[in-house]
Nucleic acid binder design. Structure first.
Lengths: 233, 233, 233, 233
DNA sequence: AATGAATGAGTGTTCATTCAT
DNA sequence: AATGAATGAACACTCATTCAT
């Protein structure tokens, strides 16, 4: 009686099947997280973080409340994940494109151009900004969040501009007397100021024209222009 | 024992008085409204509009809940009154001072200087900004509010700059080719962008230096600089 | 114009009336608190603290949720208030009666007799015990609660017995070699052990007989009897 | 392409195997149950039955949720199994040791000694007690559970003492006038009362000293001493 | 006009249990 | 038998607003 050999194989196979196979793939989980984040983004954009409820997210995502809490441990957690992902994506794409541009000056021009065209190219831009700014205000009342955002701001955004400016100074494209730190701070203050107005005023605000004028002013500031004038003479 | 008859007369009289004659003066009412608004501002600045509760306002104002609802019909209502009043006050003071300055260029310089010094002169500036921006974001989700703010923005703030620029163009101080509308929009976008960063980052943000550099750039843009250069020759 | 003098009187009267009169009396508030606590006690006794919900209390009290939270800041808070009040009441009554009894021995006998008769005299005794013990277990996992209860236990309950025992030792009623601290701890351990069984087993447990036997043993222990024996031998 | 036919056979075979033959041995299942119960005990002891979650048990056991539900149909079910097993084990060990002791008096002394030393010998004693008592309180609200515990209490614990006492009466070691039922009930009331205090107060409670004093009192009660007294007189 | 107790729908979060795989 | 994602009813608690006094 019995076929020990086959039994062994059989049991092994069964055990393997049972033990090893992950019920859902990693991709599945990623997809779910993404789905929640996308729904949450829309809800936050529509109503604001405070006003949007988990029930809104539940309803719009078509998932159950428990399911969402399997992926994120709180509403704040979704917010943070959302922001990290948005930052990572946008800055990553930017960096990729910038690295293909040889001159620092051209890089700055490219960057400013990207932002000038955002309103037309990226239909989510308005929402993006509102959610972003709201989160930011939020952070000023939560030390942990503030540190997270501040770090991100300094190490990622400001650093990006800072590096371009320093490179430009090195190659002689930009004025040596430039305060790269100050300008990188000012750069984002202006970009975000304009974007905030756009996010609030929406299509009543001439986003592109304002952004282009701002870009012009920034380029004028960092270029050797003033010295050119003197040379012109 | 008492004097029921007289009591009756008294009560009647009192009731009548309340109905017929305004027992408290208009000034008293204004004073109360002001008190509520001031308290509310502090609460909103500290916690944010959404998070601050009516109970916070009750507690900090020393008034009763019912009293507050006698003066304002909702929390939103306080917010709106607050913003209207803040705008009126700040812009009113500004206008007073500007009218004493004869040249458009000097007016612009004065204005930029005022904002540069805000952080040091006005310890409430950070709170001011946060409440302002938050309210603003709020407004993008409430059409009524949005119209109110947009009108205010255009008719008061942008108009202020627009008028100075046009005057400067008329007197020849500023370049004739200037797009006054565009610059007045850009002006506030930059000021508010810098202020927002400051409101969030607080003292980690070199507000004054950034604001001064921004002022420099704006002045450079609107002045006849290019022509000066030529004249310099 | 007008009658400033009368106006003054009138306004003063009105202001006084409005400002001073408390809308609800202190008694009213005490009555409400009591009502909530009584309802809560019944709920906790029926289902246990953990299982009983605020909605149970809401439903059974006939009050609204918000009203309850106006009087107590949390479910725990109700629990604590409940326990403090129960302790205060029961120990207060006990102390009053004890103070009328001249001899320490008689006091002990009285005390034991009170507990022996609890089951028959106090129909809530079972519930009382269960709620009490449950709260107690709860406390072992909450340091703050534990300290509160421990303090109460030591300073009120154990102290009560300790004082009687010491008084008895002083008057020669009780053995000088008695460890008053130890006996006072043991006393309540036994009383509560018996009560716990009764609270759980309910009328299947011969509460009175057990308590009487225990009382007999305790009295035997603290009386001079044992020494007489040794001397007798 | 595959071999659908063979596939079919394979799948069928596997399905059949699972259905027909027990793939895992009865021992394996017992081992699993034990593992779950041990983990559950630790969780319940740490947090209490209500507060400990199935997820706690999942995490600490290293098993999956589904697996646990294969062995126990509910959280309550684990609780019951746990209690039954604990009772069986502890009483079983006790009985084994008692059977080796020839005299009833020595058996009582041994028993009391075991409990006196529990705190020092059994580091789990505190947890044990808390879980036990908590379960017990629980039972008072669940008729089924109550009957189960009451039966267990009477048939196992009280019976144990009852038998020793009766044996002692038979051999003349204990007083003939002893109410064995009453004393056996009192015995556990005292033991559990002391243990409960210890479980809650933890090391602030002089467990051993109290238990020894209680043991002394119990022994004094059941020994022939009292009759000696009468004779003495 | 003033009071503050009352209201109750709504909030984020938890968790025993189920079930497709 | 094993997995762990999904479910959704509960939960304690909040708070803008109302209204009897």
């Amino acid at each position: 009686m019995g076929q020990p050999f086959l039994d062994g194989i059989f049991n092994f196979a069964i055990m393997r099947m049972i033990k090893v196979a992950p019920i859902v793939s990693r991709e599945y989980k990623e997809k779910m997280k993404k789905k929640i984040m996308e729904t949450a983004f829309l809800c936050f954009a529509e109503k604001g973080f405070q006003v949007a409820t988990m029930d809104d997210i539940v309803k719009n995502s078509g998932m159950s409340k428990g399911a969402i809490y399997n992926y994120f441990k709180s509403k704040d957690d979704i917010y943070i994940a959302l922001m990290e992902e948005r930052t990572k994506t946008s800055i990553g794409q930017l960096k990729d494109k910038l690295s293909a541009i040889p001159s620092a000056k051209k890089q700055m021009e490219f960057l400013l151009n990207v932002y000038s065209l955002q309103a037309e190219k990226n239909p989510e831009w308005q929402n993006n900004i509102r959610v972003h700014i709201e989160f930011w205000l939020q952070s000023s009342r939560d030390e942990k969040l503030k540190l997270l955002l501040e770090k991100r701001m300094k190490e990622i955004y400001q650093q990006l501009i800072f590096d371009i400016l320093e490179e430009g100074k090195r190659t002689g494209e930009f004025s040596k007397s430039l305060d790269s730190t100050l300008i990188s701070i000012l750069f984002w203050s202006i970009i975000d100021g304009i974007s905030t107005y756009y996010g609030v005023m929406k299509d009543d605000y001439p986003y592109r024209k304002v952004m282009e004028k701002a870009g012009e002013m920034i380029l004028k500031e960092i270029n050797h222009k003033s010295e050119y004038h003197k040379e012109d003479i």
